[in-house]
Write a protein that binds this DNA or RNA. Structure first.
Lengths: 255, 255
DNA sequence: CCATCTTTGTGCACGCGTTCACAAAGACAT
DNA sequence: ATGTCTTTGTGAACGCGTGCACAAAGATGG
C-alpha cells in the first residue's frame, strides 16, 4: 500500500523539474501585474526581482519551456503569460469542488483568487444536513450524499478538502473513487491515496511550528555561550539518566 | 536589498537540516495520536507509515536529534513527543497576531489547531474601523493603529498576514519594524523582508495551479501518440512563425 | 557593414536531501 | 551465558536543484 505519498516520483514526460513547476505560478503572477501596467518586455533580472528569485534560476526555469526570450532585450510579457498559462493548463477551465463548508471552507469559497485563473467552484459539499441549500458565496451547499453525482456530472478532477481531520481520509477515498485525481488537503492529516492521484497539503499548524523552530533558534543564538553550556550539561544528564521524562524547560524567551 | 528571500541560507547552529525540521511536526502529530491511544513504543517502520514517509528517512531525521531509540524495540512514544516538542520550541508559549480579519482571517482565528500546540492568538487586527471591538472567535478585533503597541505589549514575534494582497507588504513592514521576526503570509504576494526575518507563505492559488499542471499532464499521457505529434507540429510552426500570439488550445479534457 | 553593448541560454561544479544496505546494539528465549 | 532475532543508526552512492560565470545571440548606433 502506498501510504501518504505526497507526490509522483517521476517527472519524466516533457521533463519540467518539479521545483520549476512550483515557481511558474509565481512568475505568472508577476507577469500578469506587468501586463496590467502594459509593460511590453521585461528582463530576467527585473522579473526575478518581482518574483523573489535568483535571475539565473529564472532563466533556467524558462529554458525548460523553450527559448522565449530575445537576447539584449528580454522577454515579451504577453507572450510569456500565454506560454506559462498554457504550460500550467490554465487555458482550460478546471471545475473544483470544496468539501467541508465550515469556517475555512466558506473562506475558500469566498476567495476571489479561485475564479481568476481557470478555476471554477463547481460545488460546495458538506455533511451537515442543516447546511444543505444554504448559499455560501452565492453557491448553494449540497449534501455529501450527492458527492459522487456532482463529481460525475461536472467532470470534476480537482477536489479541495476542508473538513475536520477525522473525516478527511473518508472524504478523500470517496472523491478518488468518484474520479478525482488531484486533491488539495487543508485537514491536518496524512492522506493515503492510490498511485496516480496527486495530493498537496496546506497545513497552518505545521507552518507555525516550523516558524517556532527558527524563532527559538534565533533567541538561542543571542544567549549563545550560556545556552550551549546548559544544553550540553542537560544532554549529558539525560544520557546518563537514560530517560528523563521531564527535564527542566530551558525557558529562553525574547521578552 | 534582499528581495523576497523565503528562508535563511544557513542552517548551521545545531545543524538540523531544513527538510528535517519541516517533517518534525508531522512526526509529532503521529506520535501525539499514538500517545492518546496509550501506545508505549513504536518502530520506525510503523511511525513512518503513519507520517507518510520513508522509514530510513525518519530514522535519519531522528538521528539529527540524538539517539532516542532502542534497537530491537523502537522509540518511546512519550519521550519522543517531549524531545520533538522541545526541539520545535513548543514547550513555550508563542503569542501570535493575525492581521486582516476578513473571511480567511476569521477562519484562522477560529481554527482550533492554533491553541493546541503552544500557539496563542494574542490579538486580531484589522484596518476597518467598523470591525474594531467586534469579537471574532471570542477575541475583540483591534484597529491597525494599535499594531505596534500590541506587538510590544505582548512580546509577539510571530505574525500572520491575512490581508488583501495590496496591503500585505505594508503590514509586513510595520510588523517587522515593531519587532516581529517570523511571518506566515496568506496574501498572494511576494514579501520583501530584511535579513533575519523568516517568511513562510501559504498560497491557495499556487497550489491549485501546480495541481492543474499535473492534471493536464495526466490527461495528455492518455492521448500520448497523437498529442506528441500535435505538439511537435505546433512547436515547429511556432518556431517558424517566430511569435504566435494565439495558437490553438489543444483542448485535452478528461470529460 | 561593423563595433559595441545588453541580455539570454547553458555548461559546470557544488551542496543538500534521499535512499539503500548493512553492521552494531540490544531484547528475549533457552 | 549464549544464540537468535528485531530494529536502530549511519556510511556511501546517487540524483536533483542552485548558482556562477561565460559564450553566443541579437539589438542598436555610427
Amino acid at each position: 500500500m502506498a501510504t501518504g505519498r505526497t507526490h509522483r516520483t517521476a517527472t519524466r514526460s516533457r521533463g519540467i523539474p518539479e521545483a520549476t513547476v512550483a515557481r511558474l505560478p509565481l512568475y505568472l503572477r508577476a507577469l500578469t501585474a506587468l501586463s496590467e501596467r502594459s509593460v511590453p518586455t521585461v528582463s530576467s533580472e527585473e522579473l526575478a526581482a518581482a518574483a523573489g528569485v535568483n535571475s539565473a534560476k529564472l532563466r533556467k526555469d524558462f529554458s525548460y519551456l523553450g527559448s522565449y526570450g530575445t537576447r539584449g532585450v528580454g522577454y515579451d510579457v504577453e507572450y510569456l503569460v500565454y506560454q506559462i498559462s498554457r504550460e500550467l493548463g490554465l487555458t482550460q477551465d478546471w471545475p473544483v469542488v470544496i468539501v467541508g463548508i465550515g469556517n475555512l471552507g466558506a473562506a475558500l469559497a469566498n476567495y476571489g483568487g479561485f475564479a481568476s485563473r481557470g478555476f471554477r467552484v463547481a460545488a460546495l459539499i458538506d455533511a451537515d444536513p442543516e447546511m444543505a441549500g444554504k448559499p455560501v458565496a452565492g453557491i448553494p451547499v449540497q449534501h455529501t450524499d450527492q458527492l459522487e453525482k456532482i463529481i460525475d456530472d461536472n467532470g470534476v478532477s480537482i477536489g479541495v478538502i476542508a473538513t475536520p481531520a477525522g473525516a478527511a481520509q473518508q472524504v478523500c477515498e470517496r472523491l478518488v473513487a468518484a474520479g478525482v485525481t488531484s486533491i488539495l488537503n487543508f485537514a491536518p492529516t496524512v492522506l493515503s491515496v492510490p498511485d496516480g492521484v496527486d495530493v498537496r497539503k496546506v497545513d497552518l499548524s505545521i507552518e507555525l511550528q516550523i516558524l517556532a523552530f527558527h524563532e527559538q533558534r534565533k533567541a538561542g543564538e543571542e544567549a549563545d555561550a550560556q545556552a550551549d553550556a546548559v544544553l550540553a550539561a542537560e544532554a549529558a544528564a539525560a544520557e546518563k539518566a537514560g530517560k528523563g521524562p521531564d527535564g527542566d524547560v530551558p525557558a529562553v524567551m525574547p521578552a
